[in-house]
């Protein structure tokens, strides 16, 4: 279909999706491990497993939502600089925005300034890309890193799909 031709190549999308998964799943697993000791006291293994299923399913959906947001500019402007240097630009943007989210979540006082931090993140991304894209080693570093994050898709996507399926079936039965 013509509309899909406007999208970046599949390998490029997967590279960026890998970075998204690294941040979203990484944060959740960090929180999961942080909660686990108290859950082991209060919950059964079955309940912890179900909690993990909810976590993976949530991560699956939120990573897809973030990816969709990233792809929309490419879809609208297929020949823009965003699309032409999709992996570099999208990966740095995702990295900066999601890292900002982590900073905000780590400091409650910052939550009210989320829109301002969002703008700072976009400005920082633009500035970085304008300046750093010219540095070959940095460009290659980001591209290489993004390509290597694809491994997380193989690790995390299948269990997430199983978890979502399991919860879906469970909802039908209970």
């Amino acid at each position: 279909m013509a509309i899909f031709n406007r999208l970046p190549k599949l390998e490029q999308i997967l590279s960026v999706y890998g970075v998204i998964i690294l941040f979203t799943y990484g944060w959740t697993l960090y929180r999961f491990v942080w909660k686990l000791p108290s859950w082991l006291i209060n919950l059964t293994i079955k309940e912890i497993f179900i909690g993990l299923c909810y976590a993976l399913t949530t991560n699956l959906f939120e990573s897809l939502v973030v990816l969709t947001i990233i792809l929309i500019p490419a879809l609208i402007f297929p020949n823009s600089k965003w699309s032409l240097e999709f992996v570099f630009r999208a990966s740095t943007f995702v990295g900066i925005v999601l890292f900002t989210f982590i900073r905000i979540l780590k400091n409650d006082a910052l939550i009210n300034d989320l829109p301002a931090y969002g703008l700072y993140a976009i400005a920082a991304t633009a500035l970085l890309q304008f300046v750093l894209i010219k540095l070959n080693w940095f460009h290659n570093l980001i591209i290489g890193f993004a390509e290597r994050t694809i491994v997380f898709i193989y690790f995390l996507l299948p269990p997430s799909l199983v978890a979502a399926f399991f919860l879906g079936i469970r909802r039908l039965w209970i």
Binding site: F23, T24, W27, T28, R31, F32, K35, L43, E47, I50, G51, Y54, A55, T58, N59, F61, E62, V65, V66, L98, F101, I102, I104, L105, K106, D108, I111, L114
Partner: peptide, 23 residues
């Protein structure tokens, strides 16, 4: 109950575990 665990830990808490939706 499962939804409470999910909500409390993944959508809203002092540090929600869902990075994007939670924030």
């Amino acid at each position: 109950f499962e939804k409470y665990i999910y909500d409390d830990s993944f959508l809203y808490a002092e540090n929600p575990a869902s990075l994007f939706f939670g924030t």
